[in-house]
Amino acid sequence: MKKETWKELTIGTINPNAGNSVQNHTGTWRSGTKPEFIEEHCIHCFFCWLYCPHFAVVIDGDKVKGFNYDYCTGCGLCAEECPTKEKSIIMVKENVQLAGGGEE
């Protein structure tokens, strides 16, 4: 994304591009662990969706589909709050490539 300067900005510091933060991939901060979805244990209670601070849980209708790792920061809240006896979400180690910032 090209960064606008004050010359291009609308007067009055208005940002007309609602929700354009989706271009900022917060998943690049993730370090160490990421959640893994085990579909066969999932009861689709949506708690992971509810408690994900970074909107990284993908849902389709009334089903949980997994994670959008572009945004997942690996905080582990989803795995902690997953209520199934055999966890449907587990945190796994991942090899970290140092992030180069949030730009596409």
């Binding site: 989706v22 601070p53 970074h54 959008n68 572009d70």
Partner: peptide, 12 residues
């Protein structure tokens, strides 16, 4: 929407 810069595990 996604892409905000709040901390890991933030309650907001």
């Amino acid at each position: 929407v996604a892409g905000h810069g709040m901390c890991l595990g933030c309650g907001i």
